[in-house]
Write a protein that binds this DNA or RNA. Structure first.
Length: 515
RNA sequence: GAGCCGUUAGCUCAGCUGGUUAGAGCAUCUGCCUUUUAAGCAGAGGGUCCCGCGUUCGAUCCGCGGACGGCUCACCA
């Protein structure tokens, strides 16, 4: 305790001053935290109504406006003061004069600080400099703030503080608020897009006894009453397909999944995934749908199909480029297309030598075509991904890396699948769904072999899922879209933490205690 | 998980080759100020220089270890 007094003496200084004001208010009978004030307007309403009125027009008004918000700046004079009030719609200047509000209210106002929530009633006018301002007739303290706001000019720029104390970031930085408003609108547009097309919105289990549907490590938890291990889902896929079996032939889910993996500018352990499944469609149909969706979003959110994302200038105008993996690899590395399509391991190994530094890392864990499939993917990613800047559908994936996708009828070692790349990032993953239960069981058993051989990201077996397929699933195509990355693209964010309100952080070593 | 960089007042930042008492602006406190908007003027207070160990007569500064963060890479969406 004595120690913390020393450590936090400085901040305590300002907080001490605010506490004293708080006590003084209470002693004079003022409740510093009332909840009986009802604003009838917002700053946005006032600007919309009076933003184009000149000083004379405003002078002839006889109505009042009533606002609630936080004091985010103030400029004091002896017997008057200007302040800016910020609410959900923006900020507006207010002018407090002692001879208007009265001595008592003005004395109270003098005790108010930056960061306090207040309610004001007053009349709009224009200042000498022409700024729309509310002349305050009455004011109330609605919520006392005991800690200082970040510096007014630079705002809060310390990245760590911005993420850990997002409330300060959003209070201070208008752009950040805008980004999250855009995110909310994107979520709504996504939902509406699928509802409009008669997709059923599903809510499937977040806690699963088998974490299926993707290749990723799950978070593990425990259910006490049932004394059983549960996993946070890594994907909703297997449940959404059960719904295809169950008669919902168009379904989607838009919510959180959890993957126990690294944190980076592109990864957060929990992230938002949109998955949708459409019966009687193929992955090719979903290409068209995806183009339509992205273009609608770009038009609405960014106002253009020409986007700037970090260092890249993007053009989302359809149709987008399509690239076949075996074609591309054979062409770029001057290999026999037949050998590549046949997943000929010696051919691919030889090519890997040429690419350099990419040989047999842990392909020993996999067998036969699987090893060749993984190798082909590594080859492709190494040589092609850096140039997948403009929207590109990459297609023809090896069966081994796609255990839930439908086998191609023309190239049986490949599946009917695409991934969408933009700015080198994977934005979507889609395929014609495997609805052959015999093939599905076999594929998952192969995954189990990989798992037994040490690949802890191999897919798990889900017996009930296979049983569901045995009851019959309509032919369908499904897709997953990484919503956070989509938001990043549409808001020109380079870190996923800039589009997630409360990104994952290590715990602080100590939160400063009460002084 | 690896590499590089960073951490100084509540906030934004200076701080020379290791040398007396670590500075500025904003914020806070006191006084003045009724059209300001990074308001102004005068004054005051506020620091475990991220933590620990070491080197040194002496460390915010150099070395080692650690914590947290950023970027890049790896895994992935």
């Amino acid at each position: 305790m004595a120690r913390s007094l020393g450590v936090y003496a400085v901040e305590g200084d300002e907080r001490e001053a605010r506490r004293r004001k708080l006590e003084a208010l209470r002693e004079s009978g003022v409740n510093p935290y009332p909840n009986d004030f009802r604003p009838t307007d917002t700053t946005g309403d006032v600007v919309a109504r009076f933003g184009s009125s000149d000083a004379d027009e405003l002078a002839q008004l006889d109505g009042e406006v009533c606002l609630g918000g936080r004091i985010v700046s103030r400029r004091d004079f002896g017997k008057a003061s200007f302040l800016h009030l910020q609410d959900r719609r923006g900020r507006l200047q207010a002018y407090v004069k002692r001879n208007v509000v009265g001595d008592e209210a003005f004395a109270l106002f003098k005790q108010m600080d930056l960061g306090d929530f207040i309610g004001v009633v007053g009349k709009p006018f224009r200042t000498r400099t022409g700024e729309l301002t509310v002349e305050v007739h009455q004011l109330r303290l609605l919520g006392k703030s005991l800690r200082p706001l970040p510096e007014k000019w630079h705002g809060l720029t310390d990245v760590e503080a911005r993420y850990r104390q997002r409330y300060l970031d959003t209070t201070t930085n208008e752009q950040v608020r805008e980004t999250f408003h855009k995110r909310a609108r994107i979520i709504q547009r996504l939902r509406q897009f699928f509802v409009d097309r008669e997709f059923f919105e599903a809510e499937t289990p977040m806690m699963q006894s088998v974490a299926g549907g993707a290749a990723a490590r799950p978070f593990v938890t425990h259910h006490n009453a049932l004394d059983m291990q549960l996993y946070l889902r890594i994907a909703p896929e297997l449940y959404l397909k059960r719904l295809l079996v169950g008669g919902f032939d168009r379904v989607f889910e838009l919510s959180r999944v959890f993957r126990n993996e690294g944190v980076s500018t592109r990864h957060n352990p929990e992230f938002t995934l949109l998955e949708f499944y459409q019966a009687y469609a193929t992955y090719r149909d979903l290409m068209d749908l995806t183009e339509t969706l992205f273009v609608e979003l770009a038009d609405d959110i960014a106002g253009s199909r020409q986007l700037s994302w970090g260092e890249h200038q993007l053009d989302l105008s359809p149709p987008w480029r399509r690239v076949s993996i075996p074609d591309y690899v054979a062409d770029e590395l001057d290999l026999s297309l037949d050998a590549v399509r046949d997943l000929d391991l010696p051919t691919l190994r030889g090519a890997a030598d040429g690419v350099g530094g990419l040989l047999n890392q842990d392909y020993g864990k996999k067998y036969g075509d699987a090893a060749a499939g993984y190798l082909l993917m590594d080859l492709f990613e190494t040589i092609a991904e850096p140039e997948l800047i403009q929207p590109t559908f990459v297609e023809e994936y090896p069966v081994a890396v796609s255990p839930l996708a439908r086998r191609s009828e023309t190239a049986p070692k490949f599946v009917d699948r695409f991934e969408l790349f933009i700015a080198g990032r994977e934005m979507a993953n889609a395929f014609s769904e495997l609805n052959d239960p015999v093939d599905q069981r076999q594929r998952l058993e192969t995954q189990l072999e990989h798992r037994a051989a040490g690949d802890d990201e191999a897919h798990a077996m889900d017996e009930d899922f296979v049983r569901a397929l045995e009851h019959g699933m309509p032919p369908a195509a499904g897709e997953g879209i990484g919503v956070d990355r989509l938001v990043m693209m549409l808001t020109d964010a380079t870190s996923i933490r800039d589009v997630i309100l409360f990104p994952h952080m290590r715990p602080e070593k100590e939160v400063p205690p009460e002084a």
